[in-house]
């Protein structure tokens, strides 16, 4: 059986694990702690595929009707 990448599906927006530097910029920009970001479960299929671990932050680039592209950041939880 062949494997599929979830990210190749057009209905799934781009996800990536953020590195600490980028994350710091985002957190200072919004003046928040990680816990104040929206959450994503490690067991979420896309998190599994990325190999994200609790404590990571996943950056989501969604297509947006209003803005073309919209950035979201989600804190990985158990």
């Amino acid at each position: 059986m062949s494997k599929f990448s979830l990210l190749d599906h057009e209905l799934i927006p781009h996800h990536e694990i953020m590195d600490e530097d980028d994350l710091k910029t985002v957190l200072t920009h919004y003046n928040v702690e990680r816990e104040q970001l929206p959450k994503i479960k490690v067991t979420d299929p896309i998190a599994l595929e990325l190999g994200a671990e609790p404590g990571n932050v996943v950056k989501v680039i969604r297509k947006s009707q209003t803005a073309g592209e919209a950035l979201y950041y989600r804190y990985v939880i158990e």
């Binding site: 919004y30 928040v32 816990e35 104040q36 970001l37 929206p38 969604r62 947006s64 009707q65 209003t66 803005a67 919209a70 950035l71 979201y72 950041y73």
Partner: peptide
Amino acid sequence: RGVIVQFKYGEDGI
């Protein structure tokens, strides 16, 4: 609680 729901209002902030 200060938890973010949307990073920019309406995604375009307009």
